[in-house]
Amino acid sequence: MASTSVATAPGRSAWDGGASPMGASYGKLMMWFFLLSDAFTFSALLITYGLVRSAHPVYTGAVSAFKFSAGYWPIPERVFEAVPFLHGVEAPLVFVGIMTFILIMSSVTMVLAVEAGHRMDRVAVEKWMLWTILGGIAFLSCQAWEWLHFIHGSEGGKAVVEGTTFFGANLVHNQYGPPDFAAFFFFITGFHGFHVFSGVCLNFLIYYNTVMGVYDRRGHYEMVEKVGLYWHFVDLVWVFVFTFFYLV
């Protein structure tokens, strides 16, 4: 690709430290290794979740007769079954499905922005970056609604102490299952949501620089590619969170 920055520094021989053995620029390489370390962090959270979940009793009765209890780990699809504007309608996992769709679409628009950057097409980069930012904001809004619903709780509630009913969730009590269930929900989706938030900020920065012509003057759009890597990683993590927190 003529427009991406070269892997070999001009005027320096390969034996003079002028070559990149991995065929990628310093910045891109560092982004890859940062993402690798970030993958370890997310894995630590998800693995701890696996440890705590497998240490709790499993609900063994019929799914249709499932009731929230602190005695066993809840079935996720019975917890996440609400959709905005459809109060009282049971639609298990539909809202999470919409969130997944939004994030995958914003990943596509990001990779299209990267493609446009390779061609030095500023107008196309601007267009696709705007769609990506929009997707990120839409996802964050969905997550805000989901947290709100999770914290406030649904009808029914759960007896915490004899004679009292508790609705919703905080870090000590929750109506859905053992206290750890809500704690992991807050930590895992919260940590991911924070990554989405920083991703939106970075995407906006890239969009701003593109509009200001910074990359045109620089001669390449590699920053779009680097931030694109980060944005795809956020999508990648969501794929795992979706499976291990909502489906399994």
Partner: peptide, 28 residues
């Protein structure tokens, strides 16, 4: 990408798989 880059990203993932198996086993 170049093969070296592919492997230097994928090989460390072995630690995650190992950690996952060990901790699920521990949880049980």
């Amino acid at each position: 990408e170049v093969k070296v880059l592919i492997w230097s990203i994928l090989i460390p993932m072995i630690f995650i798989v190992w950690m996952l198996v060990a901790f699920i086993y521990e949880g049980m």
